[in-house]
């Protein structure tokens, strides 16, 4: 078991292994993680957090590596958080995004970490918010979060970051696909990667047309940037588009609003977790309990949930009165 004071000391000295061990700590154990956060105090830096999302095979990892290189070249310190899915059967995972990151190895101002979703379905893991918070103590100017390959509904990333880059590729379907709610709505910057392929111009035009219809919802125009991630083509334009985005959200106050929303979301997720854990420990301590008595096939599930929750609150209140 790690000694938290010792870990904190090494972490604050900038020891890379201590950073890695701290991430494991907050990822594995929210309770110990909370203790560690209280030792760290408030973060000193104010890194930009950028999310990269898009369908599997769109080139997210390659683009992420190229974007990181561009930021490093202008003197930034960059952390990369790469999420891959866990197996629904074993809970294990193969985390393979580093394969595309070889250009970043041996560089001192970059830190790369792979995380498994550990059963979460929104494109991130339940611990991602905590890990991002920890990285804010790590003296980075930019943190890039790469989600799992996404379909249409994995939009958790929008609540976790300051800027969302949606990576599209040519040939994934007609423009109706682009009009669907969900992933197409969350972009602050669009990338059309593999821009040397047939249909790239059309994909860009289709996205721009859809964005045109949404006008009025946002003052700041969303840029659509063609890239070829394998060669790095267009990455300078992507960097510029992100700078434009940050200039806008910082000045308009939207960045502060987003960060406040993020805080609320993390807070309510923890409340839900704590309540749920307490409910089930109560339900199990009832021995037979409502749950075990129920012949599940015969019972309307929502009604039982309401009844059980009501009983839980009544008994919890009673206990509090007795304890007082």
């Amino acid at each position: 078991m790690l000694c938290l004071d010792n870990l904190r000391e090494r972490f604050l000295q900038g020891n890379m292994r201590a950073l890695a061990q701290s991430i494991s700590l907050v990822e594995d154990n929210p309770e110990l993680g909370a203790k560690f956060f209280s030792l760290l105090g408030l973060p000193q830096g104010n890194p930009r957090i950028i999310g990269i999302t898009g369908p599997p095979g769109a080139g997210k990892s390659t683009l992420t590596a190229k974007l990181a290189l561009a930021l490093l070249a202008r003197g930034e310190r960059v952390a990369l958080l790469l999420i891959d899915p866990s197996s629904p059967f074993s809970g294990g995972a193969i985390l393979g995004d580093r394969i595309r990151m070889h250009e970043l190895s041996g560089l001192s101002d970059v830190y790369i970490r792979s995380l498994s979703t550990r059963g979460s379905l929104g494109g991130l893991s339940a611990a991602t918010a905590r890990v991002l918070r920890l990285l804010q103590h790590g003296n980075f100017s930019t943190i890039i979060l790469e989600t799992v390959g996404t379909g249409q509904a994995e939009t958790d990333v929008v609540m976790a970051v300051d800027a969302v880059v949606v990576v599209a590729v040519p040939g994934l379907g007609d423009d109706i696909q682009a009009m669907k709610a969900g992933i197409m709505e969350i972009a602050d910057v669009f990338v059309v990667n593999k821009a040397d392929r047939d249909g790239a111009d059309r994909t860009k035009l289709q996205i721009e047309a859809i964005l045109g219809m949404q006008e009025g919802r946002r003052v700041h125009p969303i840029q659509v940037v063609p890239t070829i991630a394998t060669t790095g083509h267009g990455v300078d334009k992507l960097t510029q588009a992100l700078d434009d985005h940050f200039a806008y959200v910082e000045q308009s106050g939207e960045l502060a609003r987003r960060r406040e929303k993020r805080w609320h979301k993390e807070f309510s997720a923890y409340v839900a977790n704590i309540l749920l854990g307490d409910f089930f420990s109560w339900a199990n301590s009832q021995g037979i309990g409502i749950m075990a008595n129920a012949d599940w096939a015969e019972i309307e599930v929502y009604g039982l949930a309401k009844q059980a929750t009501a009983q839980y609150f009544t008994e919890r209140m009673k206990r509090h009165v007795e304890e007082d």
Binding site: S90, G91, G92, A93, L95, G96, R98, I99, S116
Partner: peptide, 21 residues
Amino acid sequence: RALRDAGMEVIYTGLRQTPEQ
């Protein structure tokens, strides 16, 4: 794959890696 199926998180970094990497 076998380690993944045993519930472990496996980081795979691809071919031709130096000991430093």
